[in-house]
Write a protein that binds this DNA or RNA. Sequence first.
DNA 1: GCAATATATTCGATTATCCATATATATTCA
DNA 2: TGAATATATATGGATAATCGAATATATTGC
Lengths: 127, 127
Amino acid sequence: MKAAHQESTAPQILPEALFRALSDSTRLRAVVLLAREGELCVCELTIALRVSQPKMSRHLAVLRETRLVDVRRDGVWSHYRLAGGLPQWAREALRTVADGCYRQAPFARDVERLHRMPDRPGGRCST
Amino acid sequence: MKAAHQESTAPQILPEALFRALSDSTRLRAVVLLAREGELCVCELTIALRVSQPKMSRHLAVLRETRLVDVRRDGVWSHYRLAGGLPQWAREALRTVADGCYRQAPFARDVERLHRMPDRPGGRCST
DNA sequence: GCAATATATTCGATTATCCATATATATTCA
DNA sequence: TGAATATATATGGATAATCGAATATATTGC
């Protein structure tokens, strides 16, 4: 009997799709930041990465389509996190890269900007 | 004092360059095959991946430029292997992906074709 | 010295990707 | 109900990447 989220039968990400999705700087930074910070909304990612909102949204769409991230919608708010159903090799590869690179540019600055952000929705949604 | 191969000061691969290099199917398959098989020459990779020689050569050039692979030249023969000086996060990420995916298409078939190849130069160069 | 072999490179055409800008959609609040 | 807010989508243009075919280069063997 399958779990409600159907991890076992959902189309699994292929390695080529994973590498293709992360070949873009904006998407890679978003994924590394999510790996470090857990869950973030679009405006947090937009501020942290210093990109325009439509651009951020477009790249998140690619990450959704590639099944690298999951979305939790809360009214007008969309909260993103790394996908729960990733195969182990994908999860571990992302973890390895994120842990190995998050202290370096551009990732370190992304985290700085996130943590300096006033009025982070994250603070609100954990209420 | 630096080691002769200058691992500590050679320009290190960046995550974006790694993902970009492996976003192409041919290059990804080549790297996974090298991760499994150690060292291969151009014609072994060409046969295993069923791509034309100029195409294989062009993609290997990209992998060399990205410093993902090293070349050992022996007369007219060029033997490729995964780069020795990769940062740990890159080495581990590649290992994780290769170990996690080598049994699946298209990687499994690439290994089969390699192992079925008659007159493998590899047999000769280990002499 | 030339043919054979292995490999690398070039080039024009094609395909893919990214972008800024504009706009659409959904939700919430006064 | 309309304004404000958060987010998603469309589009044409620009840029980047890939490809097959052709060709170049280097080495080896006869």
